[in-house]
C-alpha cells in the first residue's frame, strides 16, 4: 500500500504543481476536454430530446439510440477514431460526446414525457402557444430530470477523459498512464485521486444545481436524489 501513502507525498510535492506536466496544466486539459464534450453533447441532445419529448414523436428511437450509445465503450471509440482523426482534441472529444449524449437525451425525453398531460392540456387551453407550453410549463417541470441526466453525463465524461492519455492526450490520465508505464504507484494513485476528486466535485455541484432548479410547486413530488431518473434509460 506504499502507493497510497506515496500518493500524498506526490500530491504535496510542490514540483508537481508547476510546469507543462504539473497538476494545474493537467487540470485545465482535463476540464477543457470533459467540459467541451458536455457542451457539445448538450447542444446536440437537448434539442432532440425537447422535440421528441414535446411532440412524443420518435421517442422510442431517441431512447433506443441512447441505449446503444451506452453499449459503446469509449476506449473502443478512441481506437476507432485515432487512425482517422489523429492527434489532438478531436479524437477524445468525439468519443466523450458520444458517451455524454445518451443520458442527456434520454433524460430530456423522459423528463418532458413525464410532465402531467392534464397540466399541458390546461396550458394549451389557456391559449399558450406551443413554444410557450414548452418553455413555461414543460421545461420547468422537466428540469430536475434533465439536470440529473446532465449530472450522469458530466461525471462519466470527467472519469472517461482519463482515457485520452492512452492516445497521447493530456489531463489527469497522463499521471495514470505514465505511472503505470514507469511502475510508479505514487504517481498512478495520485492521478486516480485527482480524477476521483474532480468527479465527486462535479457530482456534488450538479446535485446542488438539480435541487435549485426544482420549481417550488413540485418540489415535494419528486425523489430527492434523482436516481430513479438516472435509471430511466
Amino acid at each position: 500500500m506504499d502507493g497510497i501513502t506515496g500518493a500524498f507525498g506526490w500530491l504535496t510535492d510542490p514540483t508537481h504543481w508547476q510546469g507543462a506536466d504539473g497538476i494545474p496544466t493537467r487540470f485545465v486539459e482535463h476540464v477543457e476536454l470533459a467540459g467541451l464534450a458536455i457542451l457539445v453533447a448538450l447542444l446536440i441532445a437537448v434539442p432532440i430530446g425537447l422535440y421528441t419529448g414535446h411532440t412524443g414523436r420518435g421517442g422510442a428511437l431517441a431512447v433506443n439510440v441512447a441505449g446503444i450509445g451506452r453499449a459503446i465503450p469509449s476506449y473502443a471509440l478512441l481506437l476507432v477514431f485515432f487512425p482517422i482523426l489523429g492527434f489532438g482534441l478531436l479524437t477524445p472529444l468525439l468519443a466523450l460526446v458520444l458517451l455524454s449524449i445518451p443520458p442527456i437525451l434520454a433524460n430530456t425525453h423522459v423528463g418532458l414525457r413525464g410532465v402531467d398531460r392534464e397540466t399541458v392540456d390546461a396550458a394549451r387551453g389557456m391559449g399558450m402557444r406551443e413554444s410557450q407550453v414548452l418553455t413555461r410549463v414543460e421545461l420547468p417541470a422537466a428540469m430536475p430530470v434533465m439536470v440529473a441526466g446532465l449530472r450522469t453525463a458530466a461525471v462519466a465524461a470527467v472519469a472517461t477523459a482519463t482515457l485520452a492519455a492512452l492516445i497521447a492526450g493530456g489531463g489527469f490520465g497522463r499521471y495514470i498512464v505514465d505511472g503505470f508505464a514507469l511502475q510508479d504507484q505514487s504517481m498512478l494513485v495520485a492521478g486516480a485521486i485527482l480524477v476521483a476528486v474532480l468527479a465527486v466535485i462535479t457530482e456534488r455541484g450538479l446535485t446542488l444545481a438539480e435541487r435549485r432548479v426544482v420549481s417550488p410547486g413540485i418540489r415535494l413530488a419528486r425523489d430527492p436524489d434523482g436516481e430513479r431518473a438516472d435509471d430511466a434509460v
Binding site: 503505470f180 498512478l188 492521478g191 486516480a192
Partner: peptide, 17 residues
Amino acid sequence: GILYTIPSLALFAFLVP
C-alpha cells in the same frame, strides 16, 4: 460509491503489482 469513482484504468494498473 468510492470504488465506483476510481478511474478504471487506474484501478487495473494499480492492482498489477
